[in-house]
Amino acid sequence: MGCVPSKGRRQFPGYEDPVFLAAQTTFSVSEVEALFELFKSIGSSVIDEGIINKEEFVLALFKNRKKENLFASRIFDLFDVKHKGVLDFGDFVRALHIFHPSAPLEDKIVFSFKLYDLDNTGFIERQEVKLMLLALLGESEMKLADETIEAILDKTFLEADTNQDGKIDLSEWHSFVLKNPSLLRIMTLPYLRDITTAFPSFVFYSEVDEAAA
């Protein structure tokens, strides 16, 4: 494969061998190397230090660094499994792997549950869902009266909270999303199937023999 040595790729904080990352995820070695090109691009948008900070992550999502967004922040925090406040390359690949079209459905269900369990109690509570609805309204042109929001919450919890204890546990969430599969649409990124096409320059920086890939 590629034979142009990359400059200091191994000097990136948290850089991990593509072969090692490919073995842990759905990605091939070539796909991991292509993701490194994406990682570098996002991670150098504000401060070029070889990691992705929250500002850079939000900028990549919104193309506007001033935007604060509850959901983008929540996804960043879930990607940041080591709670360092920044994403290194390994964090980035292992988190994106869950969004691969071929990743296990169960992983997608668990990740989406954590996404909505804002305070990490192991339950999605009504107040959390209301907060997220209000955040959504804040970022869109949509306006809803409080009584309409409450009616939406009533309907949602009637359907999802099957034991009617006022909160949704993982088992209830599992059943709910299987009945409402569109809720998992955000958990799959078709782009990840074509990542090597999207970032073909990875070939020029590859450090891995074609045979290993």
Partner: peptide, 26 residues
């Protein structure tokens, strides 16, 4: 669809902040 016909999570999932495909747009 009118919001009342959707559940809360269907609405929330429309947030741009949950749309990671934007990461791949150059």
């Amino acid at each position: 669809a009118a919001p009342l016909t959707m559940n809360a999570f269907e609405l929330i999932s429309k947030s741009q902040g949950l749309n990671l495909s934007s990461l791949f747009e150059k």
